[in-house]
């Protein structure tokens, strides 16, 4: 097991706002690491920073290393190599992460064809296999469709398949399964788990769902207001929350009392 992603004391500020205030975390090969927190806590910014994706005016401090390359000080070509071969990002909103005027097939094979230099046919063949893996039916016809013709869940699976197509070592999954229904979510999570075993895939799993993170991840970091406030093995985070905030997060999930199920049922179902 070697360290794939290592972030040390990462700070990020855009003029007047301090987004990250000293983040340190690691993801090793074959490991799934959860990053949990409410909206605006800096989860997405942390993942994006790993690929040096932040606005031009942002100032980053600290150190980020992906596969031993210092992302913050590396040249553009080196960063592009990391993005192309080492780490793939699954964006939060699949509908906006795909170019709306291009066909699914073009968008999903773009990295293979335009970045890896595969010919179109080979790229499509590879993608079709992955489409089946992520549970997309009739993958052939999907390639010719446009994003607006597909449901959110289907787009999410397209985006996941496209990210996996480059055989990344590290997957940055930003709410990758949040748009999916429970059954599909379980399927995709199982797929990621399998890949983790087969390819030693390291996953940074970003979610707002502490229960999911606890059940699915080897380790969980809890973020709040640009800081890591807790770090626990997934299995024990509920029994032993290391922080008052973690306990609040855990308690924030409504539980259904046995009686009066009609009232609270509405609140509980999202």
């Amino acid at each position: 097991m070697s360290v794939l992603l290592e972030i040390e004391d990462l700070t990020l500020r855009v003029p007047a706002v301090e987004i990250l205030r000293g983040i340190s975390l690691q993801v090793a090969t074959g490991e799934t690491v959860g990053l949990v927190g409410e909206s605006g806590s800096g989860k997405s910014s942390t993942a994006r920073a790993a690929l040096r994706l932040f606005p031009d005016e942002a100032q980053a401090g600290g150190r980020i290393s992906v596969g031993g390359v210092d992302v913050l000080s590396a040249g553009d070509a080196a960063v592009q190599r990391i993005r192309a071969h080492d780490a793939a990002m699954i964006f939060q909103a699949p509908r906006t992460a795909l170019n709306p005027v291009r066909r699914i097939g073009d968008s999903a094979t773009e990295r293979l064809v335009q970045v890896h230099g595969l010919d179109r046919k080979a790229a499509r063949a590879k993608l079709l296999t992955l489409f089946e893996h992520v549970g997309l039916r009739d993958p052939e016809s999907l390639l010719r469709k446009y994003p607006h013709q597909l449901s959110g869940g289907m787009l999410q699976r397209v985006v996941i398949a496209a990210a996996l197509s480059i055989d990344p070592k590290l997957l940055l999954a930003d709410e990758a399964t949040s748009a999916l229904d429970v059954t599909t979510q379980a399927e995709v999570l199982a797929l990621l788990k399998r890949l983790r075993g087969e390819r030693d895939l390291g996953v940074l799993f970003i979610t707002h769902d502490l229960h999911l993170a606890a059940a699915y991840c080897d380790r969980v970091y809890v973020m709040r207001e640009g800081l890591i406030v807790d770090h626990q093995p997934g299995a024990t985070i509920f029994e032993n929350p290391g922080n008052e905030y973690t306990r609040q997060l855990a308690d924030a999930v409504p539980t259904l009392p046995a009686q009066d199920s009609t009232e609270t049922g509405k609140v509980g179902s999202r």
Binding site: Q80, R83, E110, V115
Partner: peptide, 17 residues
């Protein structure tokens, strides 16, 4: 500034492409 452009950057597409 749209997401899909950042996504394209995130997978190593050159800035010209």
């Amino acid at each position: 500034s749209l997401d899909h452009v950042e996504a394209a950057r995130s997978y190593g597409l050159t800035s010209r492409k």
